[in-house]
Write a protein that binds this DNA or RNA. Sequence first.
RNA 1: GAGCCCAUAGCUCAGUUGGUUAGAGCGCCAGGUUGUGGCCCUGGAGGCCGUGGGUUCAAACCCCAUUGGGCUCCCCA
Length: 420
Amino acid sequence: MSSSKFQTLHGMVDILPGESEKWNWLESVIRETAREFHFSEIRTPVMEPTELIARGVGQLTDIVSKEMFGFSRGETNYVLRPEGTAPVARAYVQHRLDQRGGAQKLFYIGPMFRAERPQKGRQRQFHQFGAELMGTDSPLADVEVIRFMMRVYEKIGLANITLMLNSVGDPESRAAYKTALQAYFRPHLSKLSEVSQTRFEQNPMRILDSKEAEDQPYLADAPLITDYLNGHCREHFAQVKNLLTNEGISFTENPRLVRGLDYYTKTAFELVSPDVGSQDALGGGGRYDLLVEEIGGAPTPAVGFACGMERLMLACEALGIQIGGDAALDVYLVCRGTEAQRWAMHAMPAIRKTGQSCTMDFSGKSIKAQLKDANRQQTRFAVIVGEQELADQKFTFRDMHQSTEEALPFEEILSRLATA
RNA sequence: GAGCCCAUAGCUCAGUUGGUUAGAGCGCCAGGUUGUGGCCCUGGAGGCCGUGGGUUCAAACCCCAUUGGGCUCCCCA
């Protein structure tokens, strides 16, 4: 790392050649999967009104209370989106996607921003892909979305992942559960960690998620949400589990799984990998039947997921999974002299029309240096153009892998490239 | 927001108890082949030793601060 005057901002990274090929490949896998599932891409702005995120994600969440990048200009408060679901829900309402008929199946890929302390698998600008199935409360939708998420991982070759499943209930179930939790924790309140004490009133469910040592003794016997689900939620959860089992998707029930965003209702799930260290949550999601209404739309049940792409790549790395293709070059035009360069400049479009990638030397290096450059770029064919070739109108067509070459008219070179 | 570790060439790293012009491997450039890559040989470029201050006759090395990075906690993707 040189000490250049300007550097990437804290927690932000450049994706350089060599790395960008992997991203392109990963994105193509996601898009291909989306096509198979018939989900359409939606691209929303990276900035949203602060109020949308605050209301949608929840004022009390860590994301909203301390991790947002925002600024104001005039009367408007802008925030760099910290997640993708609230913006998609906003677009759904704003453009009346519900009027397009049937449930909407949407997916997105893009950068998200959270002002956290960076570490392995955690950046301030990171990338997520996700999908949302909006306009149905059917458990079928929950399973389809889970299956989409897992299909991407499967295609990539990540087998060693676990699906954690829970139901966080609806407001009615949660109110009952909250009361039960507070009743349970109240006698121990003074012995709980500071964080947990602050969560006691507003959001006691998050106490269950605590990693604080002093809380652990009280967590084991705490009441479970699944015991407080009302009939409707209980039935929904049962159906989701039943469908998953029928579809051969294994899962681990975790009654303590609580997601960090407030909008989730009923189904909550998370994908974890044992191969990526402490940042082991590769993706997660759930049902959010109240979000659309919360931000001003008509009541719209929906379910979705989001996956962290950096973590996905880390998991691949840890498992030795090679992703992405190489950036090999098909044809390199090696030129000697300005006359040859002009010829090459004119020849390249014809070569590219054969479907082969093609470039030339732009700086007038020696033939030796040009071939070295071609070699470095894993070039398949070099076409050497010099005085002799121009005079004869036969060009040296060199197979870089075989180390063989022959003198051919340009037309012949083109027809060979067309079938190469 | 809290803790621990780190910072020398493009990359990975040496650098003795503080002591002249700061090194290696890889990579890059050039030559060995006046027009032919990979292997080999030779040479070259490239460092304000992250930044600022301090201690000292003398600092890459010791001290302080600062910035950046890594890892962990919290939380999350």
